[in-house]
């Protein structure tokens, strides 16, 4: 699971109001090189919850992203490169996503987050 996915997901157990951002429990993190596509990143930059991304990247051991959402990321190539690395190249291979409100663990196995709810959660 890449952090772009993490940035889109929340815990949707019935009644949970603050299911975002999910905390990351990392057991195994890998890096895979991906082609750099600035257009795609510019589009994504506008949609990203920056704080959640910074925190998530840190929990995978990458702390190069600036704390505050940069105003002019679209023109800043070096920042786009960092964004690229954080969003697309870091993979949570094994671990879990934990709901900040209820502590429910959504397991991540072989890179695939399992977001399906139990019968008593829907």
């Amino acid at each position: 699971m890449r952090l772009i996915t993490h940035n889109m997901l929340s815990c949707n157990i019935k009644g949970v109001a603050n299911g975002f951002p999910l905390k990351i429990e990392a057991e195994s993190v890998i890096e895979k090189e991906v082609d750099f596509n600035p257009d795609f990143l510019r589009h994504m930059f506008a949609k990203i919850e920056w704080k959640a991304l910074v925190e998530a990247a840190r929990s995978l051991g990458y702390s190069e992203l600036p704390e505050d959402s940069p105003a002019a990321a679209a023109e800043d190539e070096s920042l786009l490169k960092k964004l690229h690395h954080a969003l697309l190249e870091l993979h949570l291979e094994e671990g879990a996503l934990v709901c900040p409100e209820t502590g429910r663990r959504f397991p991540v196995t072989r890179g695939i987050p399992n977001m399906l709810l139990h019968e008593d959660e829907v």
Partner: peptide, 24 residues
């Protein structure tokens, strides 16, 4: 081909998208 950005298991009837996420 480049791998999918993400594969996930979820229920389309109860998608776990964070609130506020749109037009992505």
């Amino acid at each position: 081909l480049p791998m999918p950005v993400a594969l996930l298991r979820m229920d389309n009837n109860l998608p776990p998208w964070r609130s506020g996420l749109k037009e992505i």
